[in-house]
């Protein structure tokens, strides 16, 4: 009988999603949104809208009906004209994470799901530190778990628990998940999608749901080294971990070359799609140090500052 690779990996010691040193470094960062959002609640984030914060922005002439509390009386005394003091609005930012927890994420060495959770945890913690409203959605065939409205760093344990407890398995259907997310989550903000994007239903069709909500979308594609450089040989029966689909292949040099070319073309098609729609796209391998990813690459991409 031929060898059958184990369907599940043996339990391995789980490192904490975030360690203390890294948390300290994350606290200095904040998540940036390139769009102006009308948040329901006041937040600590300075908005480009004029509002009621302590920070002066501009003057304008008084018109009837304006709040007289904002009239600058010193100016009136000097010029005898009514001017209204304008202050920068301070508002909260919605930071949402769509985290792929399908069966395909439960593969790779290092595991893709773990890597994705750590990235999500890091970015969410940045949001918590900046009093952003952090929303977490785990999806497979659909949204399987969500946690909304986390704010301030005291919610960090809940954040980590949610991520740790997110169930792995099942098929992947980003379109359905994006639709559900868009229905539930009407507020604008930043949406970070973390997935391997191996979605047989078509990944691209899901993104318009997010763009329709005027979200600032970031797509982070996580692949394992086994997917990028397969180390397979011989006559194999490849079984899809999500839907048990089978592909019988005889591994050969041309076939491997063709696979890599297809993978590259697939990734490039996603990147092109994202670029055309103002979506930030980043491909990373699970072997890439995620601290560096967060502190360097995402910073370079403008997601954090």
């Amino acid at each position: 009988m031929a060898d059958i690779a184990p369907t599940t990996l043996p339990p391995r010691p789980q490192a904490p999603l975030l360690d203390a040193d890294f948390l300290a470094r994350l606290e200095q960062l904040e998540i940036i949104s390139r769009k102006i959002h009308a948040a329901r609640n006041k937040g600590e984030r300075q908005s480009r809208r004029k509002g009621e914060s302590a920070e002066f922005a501009d003057y304008r002439n008084y018109v009837s009906g304006d709040d007289i509390r904002h009239i600058d009386w010193n100016i009136y005394a000097r010029l005898d004209r009514l001017f209204l003091k304008l202050f920068l609005e301070e508002e909260e930012l919605n930071v949402s994470f769509l985290l792929d927890v399908s069966g395909s994420m439960d593969s790779g060495e290092p595991q893709k799901a773990r890597y994705a959770k750590r990235v999500a945890a890091a970015l969410a913690y940045i949001g918590l530190c900046n009093y952003d409203r952090v929303n977490l959605y785990a999806y497979a065939e659909s949204v399987v778990a969500s946690r909304n409205g986390l704010r301030s760093r005291r919610n960090l344990p809940q954040l980590l628990k949610f991520l740790e407890d997110a169930p792995l398995g099942g098929g992947s259907n980003f379109v359905a998940a994006a639709r559900q997310f868009a229905l539930r989550h009407t507020q604008k903000g930043v949406c970070v999608v973390i997935s391997d994007l191996f979605d047989k239903h078509g990944f691209q069709q899901g993104l318009p749901f997010l763009l329709g909500r005027n979200l600032d979308v970031y797509v982070l594609q996580v692949l394992s080294p086994q997917e990028m450089e397969p180390e397979l040989a011989g006559d194999l029966k490849l079984v899809d971990v999500e839907d048990e689909d089978v592909a019988e292949v005889t591994i050969s040099k041309p076939l491997l070359a063709k696979y890599k070319a297809n993978l590259q073309a697939y990734c490039e098609s996603i990147r092109d799609y994202c670029n055309q729609r103002g979506i930030s796209y980043l491909l990373t391998a699970t072997t890439h140090p995620f601290e560096q990813l967060v502190l360097t690459y995402l910073r370079a991409r403008g997601l954090v500052r």
Binding site: A5, K112, L232, V239, V241, D245, K258
Partner: peptide, 22 residues
């Protein structure tokens, strides 16, 4: 004679596409 070894992969669609291309 042809008994293939079974391997579980994250997705088969890229493999199938490669096979089809060849």
């Amino acid at each position: 004679k042809l008994r293939r070894q079974e391997r579980r992969v994250s997705s088969t669609f890229l493999w199938k596409k490669a096979v089809q291309d060849l």
